[in-house]
Nucleic acid binder design. Structure first.
Length: 895
DNA sequence: TTAGTGTGGTAGC
DNA sequence: ATCGCTACCACACTAA
């Protein structure tokens, strides 16, 4: 049997063969899918040549009880040239499944097959021809969806519409049905699959010798989703059709149209349009559901073919769209008879024919000397055609006439700019402008690109597919939270999702960006789109993770802090995004360890930036009872400053491991004198007594404006502090304590100051603080500038030893790092990887820096953090770390 | 100048 | 109902 020719199909499309029967389709399917099958030969002997061989291209699987019974059905089929089988072995591809009923499991399994009732076999035999299967389908076609009609006894629990309650399930459902998610992941997978490791040297060599010989083809399915979804509903092919998630047959729907066929486009319907509007334009519009698996199948056929014909490079653009370098392919055909353009025509035609044969969907092909031309040619070729743009005359003409909006990288925003500011609508309009004028209008880089476009220059090199730089997940549909708890639940699930994605590609990341979409002030509570985000303000916040990680709980601990820091009402949240960057491949175990130290260093710097210097003054007396009334964030700030006073080297003291009772009133000066880990425990205790909130506000620096706004005497104080620190004066405590401040900070000055302090401190509270604390607060920020300057002045420091020195954190940074580790993993237990890093870190502290106390205190702190923790793994980890310290210090009785 | 951060735009159906 | 994703680039802005 021969494959159908494109001409057959073209006729059908033109209407000369409009009543095309399903037979044609079946012919084709068998040819493609079973051309190697020997089954047909085997069954030849059962054929009754007196009967019309209507089933000759059918392989039927008869499932379960049927009427008539399976044996009778098999007889009918095989006597008329068909093949029937009683079981599926996974190797034999089947054209029809004959069944009266299907279990949900099988239902899913056969979702892509033609499942028909037994009566179809009987009636077809009687009619002497294959009847359309649609009247015999056990699948409900009336609603234009693939929902089964008969068997719904145990429907899965209806998934939640909104993200609040069953977050895991919501996220699963959402991504399963999101076309944009599928498109994005497909693209990533394809890019990964075709990633070529072209070296710098090869690239240069190739581009210098081949540049002017290059021929690029841009290949794209016509209305991909619509065409592929239509394969199962060929009787709708001549109608206006779209693909959408909506199952409603009427009414004003806000569901997106993912794809529509060209008949629908004649009504003005476009991709992305809402179904409701499309129905207004065309009441007869037919809706099909997504068929993601079929899309993948068609896509695979395209990419398989591309690989088979031996192209020079492949750059996936989308699941249905690809850029290929066909230079060699074309030049190989050139001879006395065949010009280069002829060769390109041949290649394009062959591509179109092969792809149609293997997918029954049409592609369009654009060919040009670079990506820009290929793309422009493709646009002209659509639908169902090809255009070769290789001679400079037609290139000039086509490029010049090309509307700016249709060029790559020029979207609605850029084209509006160019139209408004330069009155330019086509590339030839743009040719009038100089490089500088273009750059002034759209920016330097984009201006340069446009300038080159005008002259048919395009740098895009399709041979290079760079490594992935980020992994992210976004959801901005169905986000409606009623409480912070729901938000937290969702974030836990969501971090699981991003962790899953990292693990899937075997990568870890060390930098996190959280994006929140918050309903805009002027947007209605409920968006026009059902459960959509509506108009939103977007807020992004990012933070280092201090190690390469893919652990959901660890990522969560930081993600949640960022979410809390934004401090948006849960009810107003409309979208959430998580992005992980600074990625490494898991494989680089050794490298990674070293990199972790670089990250620890980063942690040290970062904390300094956030919380101030490590040797600030102790303020004058603060009543802890008063302190505990303050907002947690301010408490934390003050405590930090207390703790950073005079540090006693605990390494030289004998410390008891007794349970710690915290009296209600503590003299902070006394606290400051306590051994390190006891202080820590007190602080921890205080923190847990107060509001359960460990979020530090991100304190920006106090700028000159704030400084200038302060009363003269406070400015003086700050300068004093500044100078004194500079000269390293010994007795700092007294100066701060003795400082007398008489004037009040005024409210308007506070307003400015507050900008620099974060949102959580109110004027009322600030004003009640001891004046010296006010000064401290301000002073600290001033200090930051000095610190940063000092860091910035350090030379490059690239050699290993300098790096290790630079990695040193202060004790609190190290302890906070440990706290974060425990917080993230208290229940699940420590991860070996981090333990290794910490082990190496403390070894180096002792060996290289001779800093025993930080190492010892860190391990002791870890022990305190895990007091009463039931997980035995933590205790063995502590034992191991203790052993490390003991070995390094040579001292047996530290712990 | 340089480097980092947050924001915005673009592409695919 | 309905599933408005995601990688990457470029720019504006800030700090130093």
């Amino acid at each position: 049997m021969a494959p159908p020719k494109i001409s057959d199909w073209t006729k059908a499309k033109n209407g000369t063969n409009a009543n095309k029967s399903p037979l044609k389709f079946d012919d084709f399917g068998i040819y493609m899918r079973h051309k190697q099958s020997k089954l047909v030969e085997i069954c030849k002997d059962k054929v009754d040549n007196a009967l019309p061989q209507i089933f000759k291209d059918c392989i039927c699987y008869i499932n379960g009880y049927t009427s008539p019974d399976p044996r009778e059905l098999a007889e009918i089929i095989s006597s008329r040239g068909g093949v029937s089988i009683q079981f599926l072995n996974g190797k034999t591809a089947v054209t029809h499944i004959i069944a009266t009923q299907l279990t949900p499991r099988k239902m899913e399994e056969f979702r892509k097959c033609k499942v028909v009732k037994p009566q179809w076999v009987v009636d077809s035999a009687a009619a002497g021809k294959l009847l359309p299967i649609f009247d015999y389908s056990i699948i409900d076609l009336a609603g234009n969806n693939m929902t089964l009609k008969l068997t719904k006894p145990v429907q899965m629990k209806q998934p939640p519409h909104k993200a609040g309650q069953d977050s895991d399930n919501f996220i699963l459902q959402f991504y399963a049905k999101s076309r944009l998610h599928h498109l994005s992941t497909w693209k990533s997978e394809l890019k990964h699959h075709f990633q070529s490791h072209v070296t710098e040297y090869m690239t240069q060599k190739a581009s210098s010798s081949q540049k002017d010989r290059q021929i690029i083809a841009h290949i794209d399915f016509d209305c991909f989703f619509a065409s592929v979804s239509l394969l199962k509903f060929p009787h709708l092919a001549q109608k206006p059709v779209c693909v959408t998630n909506s199952t409603s047959t009427t009414g004003n729907s806000s569901a997106d149209i993912a794809s529509c066929n060209y008949i629908a486009r004649e009504y003005g319907i476009t991709n992305g349009m809402w179904l409701g509007k499309a129905r207004q334009l065309c009441p007869d519009l037919q809706c099909l559901s997504y068929d993601f698996e079929a899309y993948e199948t068609a896509s695979k056929a395209l990419y398989d073919y591309i690989l088979n014909i031996g192209v020079d490079a492949v750059l996936p653009v989308s699941v249905d769209e690809v850029l290929v370098d066909i230079s060699s392919l074309c030049y190989a055909r050139v001879n006395g008879e065949v010009s280069l353009a002829d060769a390109a025509h041949q290649v394009a035609q062959e591509m179109r024919q092969h792809i149609f044969e293997s997918t029954r969907c049409t592609i369009s092909v654009g060919i040009g000397p670079n990506v820009l031309c290929a793309k422009v040619a493709l646009r002209r070729a659509k639908p169902d055609g090809y255009v070769v743009l290789l001679d400079s005359a037609s290139i000039d003409q086509e490029l010049g006439a090309c509307s700016l909006k249709s060029l790559p990288r020029i979207g609605p925003s850029l084209s509006a700019k160019l139209s408004q500011n330069l009155n330019a609508h086509t590339l030839s309009d743009l040719r009038a402008y100089t490089l500088e004028q273009l750059q002034k209008c759209v920016g330097s880089r984009t201006g340069e690109v446009l300038f080159k476009y005008c002259r048919n220059e395009d740098d895009t090199d399709i041979r290079i597919i760079p490594d992935r730089k980020s992994v992210s997940a976004d959801i901005s549909w169905g986000i409606r939270f009623n409480s912070l708890q729901e938000t937290e639940n969702f974030m836990r699930s969501f971090t699981k999702e991003i962790s899953r994605r990292l693990k899937e590609i075997n990568m870890k990341g060390s930098f996190l960006t959280v994006k929140l979409l918050i309903r805009a002030k002027d947007a209605p509570i409920e968006s026009a789109k059902h459960l959509g985000s509506g108009k939103c303000d977007s807020i992004t916040r990012s933070t280092p993770l201090y190690m390469y990680t893919d652990e959901p709980d660890y990522i969560f601990s930081y993600a949640w802090k960022e979410v809390l820091a934004v401090n948006a009402p849960p009810e107003e949240l409309r979208g959430i995004g998580l992005q992980i960057t600074k990625l490494v491949h898991q494989d680089y175990e050794d490298k990674q360890q070293r990199l972790n130290f670089a990250l620890l260093e980063e942690k040290g710097k970062n904390n300094k930036r956030k919380s101030g210097s490590d040797d600030c003054d102790i303020p004058s007396q603060i009543d802890l009872a008063v302190l505990s009334q303050l907002p947690p964030s301010l408490q934390e700030e003050i405590r930090k400053r207390i703790r950073l006073g005079k540090v006693v080297d605990a390494g030289h003291k004998e410390i008891e491991d007794s349970p710690i009772q915290v009296p209600s009133q503590i003299d902070p000066l006394v606290v400051a004198q306590l051994p390190h880990e006891i202080r820590k425990a007190i602080e921890k205790d205080i923190a847990t007594r107060g509001e359960k909130c460990d979020v530090l506000p991100r304190l920006s620096q106090v700028d000159q404006e704030v400084f200038d706004a302060l009363p003269e005497h406070i400015r003086q104080e700050i300068m004093n502090e500044y100078d004194r620190e500079e000269k390293e004066v010994e007795n700092e405590k007294e100066m701060a304590a003795d400082t007398e401040i008489n004037d009040e900070v005024t409210l308007s000055q506070w307003t400015i100051l507050k900008e620099g302090l974060g949102e959580n401190i109110s004027w009322e509270i600030f004003i009640t603080l001891p004046k010296s604390v006010q000064v401290q607060t301000i002073c600290e920020h001033h200090e930051l500038k000095k610190r940063h300057k000092a860091v910035g002045q350090k030379p490059g420091m690239r050699d290993t030893f300098a790096k290790l020195k630079g990695m040193r954190m202060n004790e609190d940074d190290f302890d906070n790092f440990l706290s974060g580790w425990v917080e993230a993993r208290k229940d699940i237990g420590p991860d070996y990887e981090t333990e290794k890093v910490i082990g190496k870190y403390i070894s180096d502290l002792i060996d290289i820096e001779g800093n025993r106390s930080t190492a010892i205190n860190g391990v002791k702190w870890l022990d305190i953090l895990l007091k009463g923790c039931g997980n035995q793994l933590w205790h063995t980890t502590i034992k191991r770390l203790q052993r490390t310290v003991i070995d390094k210090t040579g001292c047996e009785v530290i712990f």
